[in-house]
Design a protein around this nucleic acid. Sequence first.
DNA 1: GATCGCCATTGATAATCGTCAATTCGAAAT
DNA 2: ATTTCGAATTGACGATTATCAATGGCGATC
Lengths: 231, 231
Amino acid sequence: MRDSDRTVIRALALFREIAEAEFDRLIEGAFLQRFPMHVVLINEGEHADFLHIIVEGVVELFARYEARETTIEILQPVTTFIPAAVVRDDVYLKSARTLAPSRILMIPATNVREMFGRDPVFARAVVDEVALRYRRLVRALKDQKLRTGAERLANWILETDRQQGSRGRVSMPYEKRTLSALLGMTPENLSRTLASLTAHGISGNGREILISDRDALLRCARPDPLIDGPE
Amino acid sequence: MRDSDRTVIRALALFREIAEAEFDRLIEGAFLQRFPMHVVLINEGEHADFLHIIVEGVVELFARYEARETTIEILQPVTTFIPAAVVRDDVYLKSARTLAPSRILMIPATNVREMFGRDPVFARAVVDEVALRYRRLVRALKDQKLRTGAERLANWILETDRQQGSRGRVSMPYEKRTLSALLGMTPENLSRTLASLTAHGISGNGREILISDRDALLRCARPDPLIDGPE
DNA sequence: GATCGCCATTGATAATCGTCAATTCGAAAT
DNA sequence: ATTTCGAATTGACGATTATCAATGGCGATC
């Protein structure tokens, strides 16, 4: 593993506080690997043998049921997946694939579980991480059950703009079909909804969305700190 | 606190393994209280000052957005809520209310957070608990995004029957309007969907549902271990 | 046992959303 | 520049779901 990678991973909330020696033991047997775009890293139903960490790139967590498929979450560096399955020593409930060329660190699940018992500081960090993920998922479920498609899209635009520096210019980090799956709608409906939001403060060209009238967009979106942010 | 209550709480996965002295310290300042039906215990947005444990009764976790409201989860003894907010020392994202006369144990959040650092066994138990909840929520989100209303209802019937001993006779533990909110539909639609399932293996009277043709119901529901069970 | 109030049901209608099909658009390769 | 392939858009249609309104039923209360 390169030194610069080590530094980045070490800076993760999950590893920041633990002792040097413990960190070395943890990443023993781990490996950092490059993957091209659209590679499946995890298949739901498989046993959780590794804790994955996305060091670079974009990863989609998705799930299938019969012929249907939906996106649960989209992850960007630096984040772990999927901690809950590793902690419980169980099968994954979600699949994962790269949406861009990515570098992924894979830590053997046994190392992670072993280290709970040894290092209280690490155990505390893992609790924090899983609890954070739990809360994100609560927000996602509220978003899905309490809002219409147009509201979800409007809030996604505002939230993504915030993440990109509130410049009023949002660039989509992945395909529209992926965004539609994340928002819980079909690609066709995303197109139409995006078109209809043109009358409410946005204008878009391809993968760029411009927020021309933030107040109008806010009136559509009505963001809520208990759904959208700040996490 | 009564001795019998103490025994029940002590048997929780969260507390089973910890030392007697630690347990005593944890529940110092805790109190066990009775609540009538339909009492709000937690308001989303409030800071998480207590870890709640439902010792007896039924508790609904729900959330509001504007004038809308939905159910996130329904809890029965013995379960904690809401561990993630307590762990992260943050505000609740969900509200909670009793759906039946209930007895709730409330442990000061500071006690819980303090004990992480002291007791690795407890820290490990908390990780397990939060991870379990995370996985339940993943299942709920998959259920919501990947299935139709009728499928969700059919699977709820099968799952509830299993929980009640697979006797082919399901009794609803709460009002139909609550079930409809849990399943992400309106009460009107629940009525209609329930009526339509009559042609597929069930027959119902009020709060009782009889599974008359399990195979037919299974063909409707198509349960999936990665969504419905076994947790 | 009669009254009251709320939940549940049913019907009618409208809005939302998904599906199918046909283009259009755009990026990558030749 | 041209070709090519797949994504994105657009339109038409159908299914699903929500909303509004009215009625029926059930339990709680007196």
